[in-house]
């Protein structure tokens, strides 16, 4: 008869709960999905907080000017990347769970990843352009 969990010998240790584990496509996709998901929540909170300025035209203009600085442009580009990746990998998860596309999960990841890069280059071009001209133009 197996030991009940509660009667497990004291000596047994849970020390191997977090052992280094090789990161394959699926785990990589998930880690990035969670990272971007949490980052988007943080961004959304900051964004709404800053929007308080909408009630005061002068403060709003000052903010908009501030956001033209290169650091904010780079942030904008990262935001675009996070949204694009999270949305496309979200689609991947939906296809796996609803349509049973699990056998294609790796190909799906790389295909949608390529789409993400294309969208980031196309959508991010104006942002990159502004930053490059700021520093080198």
């Amino acid at each position: 008869m197996a030991l009940e969990t509660a009667e497990r010998p004291k000596a047994a240790t849970d020390s191997n709960r977090f052992q280094w584990y090789k990161v394959r496509t699926g785990m990589f996709a998930w880690m990035l999905h969670r990272l971007t998901g949490v980052a988007l929540v943080v961004y959304l909170i900051l964004h709404v907080w800053e929007l308080r300025a909408l009630t005061d035209p002068d403060a709003f203009n000052a903010l908009i000017t501030k956001y033209h600085a290169p650091i904010y442009k780079i942030g904008e580009f990262l935001l675009l990347g996070a949204v694009v990746y999270h949305a496309l990998n979200g689609l991947r998860i939906v296809l796996i769970d609803f349509l049973g596309w699990s056998p294609n999960q790796k190909r799906l990841f790389w295909t949608l990843g390529a789409v993400a890069v294309i969208l980031m280059v196309v959508g991010g071009y104006p942002i990159i352009h502004t930053v490059v001209t700021h520093f080198f133009g």
Binding site: A2, P9, A12, T13, N16, R17, F18, Q19
Partner: peptide, 20 residues
């Protein structure tokens, strides 16, 4: 040892939780 169950000795884990 397999990560996520208590270790009894070396590479042997306590499987009771797994089988519960």
């Amino acid at each position: 040892p397999l990560p996520g169950s208590p270790v009894i000795k070396d590479l042997v884990i306590d499987q009771s939780r797994f089988f519960e």
